[in-house]
Design a protein around this nucleic acid. Sequence first.
DNA 1: GAAGGTGGTAATTGGATGATTACAAGATCA
DNA 2: TGATCTTGTAATCATCCAATTACCACCTTC
Lengths: 205, 205
Amino acid sequence: MSSVSEPKSERIPAAQRREQILDAAAEVFGERGYAGTTTDQVAQAAGISQPYVVRMFGSKENLFCELLLRARERLETRLRNALTRPEVKALSAAERKAFLGRAYVDLIGEGGIVLPLMQGFLLGHDPVIGKYAREGFLVIYRLLRDEGGFSQDEVRDFLAGGMLINTLLTLQMTGLYDTDDTARELLGCSFGEKIDIVLNAGSAS
Amino acid sequence: MSSVSEPKSERIPAAQRREQILDAAAEVFGERGYAGTTTDQVAQAAGISQPYVVRMFGSKENLFCELLLRARERLETRLRNALTRPEVKALSAAERKAFLGRAYVDLIGEGGIVLPLMQGFLLGHDPVIGKYAREGFLVIYRLLRDEGGFSQDEVRDFLAGGMLINTLLTLQMTGLYDTDDTARELLGCSFGEKIDIVLNAGSAS
DNA sequence: GAAGGTGGTAATTGGATGATTACAAGATCA
DNA sequence: TGATCTTGTAATCATCCAATTACCACCTTC
């Protein structure tokens, strides 16, 4: 019951296979990080052979960069879509922030976007990926500030909440929800009413 | 001008050498992450040979766990010290939060504590380190809630701000402060008046 | 002054891993 | 039908890396 299609290796158009690989890469990189993931793990998750992954993307580094790009674009369009809804524009800044937060958790529930981004944020030291990741972060910041009608501090607070959420996810704190009172309390006040989305996402994969 | 003592390999008591290795490990692991760091890089940063690092700590994994433990303890005592100062107890919750935030940035300036912790937070998938990291996170949460006199939401907001700061550091966003307007704005409103501490820390190492 | 404990390294090893090469099976089209 | 392009794999390579082994140099203490 993996979210990354069948393990059967049929003959499939390259463009489609490419998306499969990116989906698989999002899952594995998102969980284990860039350095902690092997191209073979990605290949197995995608149901194909390791050399095909490398040949399709040229290198592991390039695969990760394309993954980051795709994830950032999806986050971008999702935030932009949420901000341009007519009923949202009428809300106060605080209400818009809360609305965006719920949209963000929804996006997390779909998987494959937020965790790879977060893993990229830890690679500032890498000359290639670091540059990519910094640029992506700043793109999101500017999007919220300029198209969201938020002040600097409001954007900062929104991003801060997002980083806490990301951290709790990469920590896999959700796995303690049923057994640890403190974890349940922290998760509850971090994810709010949308807590079920992230709990189910953990058990589904 | 490294912060990790001389590269000369003299004969030094094991306990002292151990601290040197932990200091070096904090720097390298903090920058490159767990999987992205080799024991040889730690050894070179500490000015000794790779086998000595492994023999002193048994394994790379155990070295990282001890590093996490030390970092968490230092953060814990620092927060506790800040909270128990008599003039702090008289402040409002919002003022105490701001005060703690400044203490946190001061701690960052000293190096070797916050970045390794953050790297640990990305290792939730690891059966050994993940457990360590989750426990450490919850210890800090309870400390703030119970000894800091904060509500759940206040602790959440404080942690969120901390995670944003950590992310900006691991992204090495500070390197763009002089050349990128957006980065300068974001860093300015995230670190506040203490921005110089983190900018200097970046150029000193 | 040897005997043992402590602090250290050189050399090596076994496994993992990203990448390359060579090849094969199916599709497309003349 | 056969030439060629596309989709894919098996086998292999070169490198890296954590860990082990075997050793050396100092210090203490009897």
